[in-house]
């Protein structure tokens, strides 16, 4: 059980509901594999140290920083990315609210924010302020400021709890 150092690893996982088989290097991050090996570039990298949340996606329903998760660790897991959110032409309510509230300016933090917000509202459809911050505090927006983003998420929450 001591094969070559750079032996590749086979990983079975579901990406946006689709069973996927990947062969990855042990040290490749999930972010890198999604973006550069299979072209799901909706998930963004920005700090590559878990500080900004741009790379947030859902692993088994919970938000994680895909820049810090090794792809090989995700074996057997369920991955949801921004690409899996809309149904055909129909935007997810968070996506729609982000547009309506002007919450996506440069748009770079948007996919990560939307995924973090989805995790938050999946668990707590109508969060109080502390829960809201706990759910969103790992995502940084440099450009839009947080006001319209909070409005978008709150707007989505209103529809969510209906």
């Amino acid at each position: 059980m001591t094969p070559e150092a750079d032996e590749m690893v086979a990983v079975e996982l579901a990406i946006n509901g689709k069973p996927t088989h990947l062969v990855v290097r042990p040290d490749e991050t999930l972010l890198f594999v999604l973006r550069d090996s299979i072209g799901l570039t909706g998930t963004k990298g920005a700090c590559l140290e878990g500080e900004c949340g741009s790379c947030t996606l859902l692993l088994n329903g919970a938000p994680v920083n895909s820049c810090l998760v090794l792809a090989a660790q995700v074996h057997g897991g369920r991955v949801e990315t921004i690409e899996g959110l809309a149904h055909g032409d129909k935007l997810h309510v968070l996506q729609r609210k982000f547009i309506e509230s002007g919450a996506a300016q440069c748009g770079y933090c948007t996919p990560g924010l939307i995924m973090a917000a989805k995790a938050l509202l999946d668990e707590t459809p109508n969060p109080d302020e502390e829960t809201f911050f706990r759910g969103m505090e790992g995502n940084i927006c440099r450009c839009t400021g947080y006001t319209s983003i909070c409005e978008a998420i709150r707007g989505a929450a209103r529809e969510w709890s209906r």
Binding site: R35, D36, G39, T41, G42, T43, K44, G45, T81, I82, E83, L85, A86, L91, L94, Q95, R96, F98, I99, E100, G102, A104, Q105, G107, Y108, T110, P111, I114
Partner: peptide, 24 residues
Amino acid sequence: SEDRIDGPEKVLGTALYGADLFYG
């Protein structure tokens, strides 16, 4: 307050930024 015309591609994650051009 018209919706941004680049809004949909940004919330869908389909907008292509510099590093998104690497793939393929």
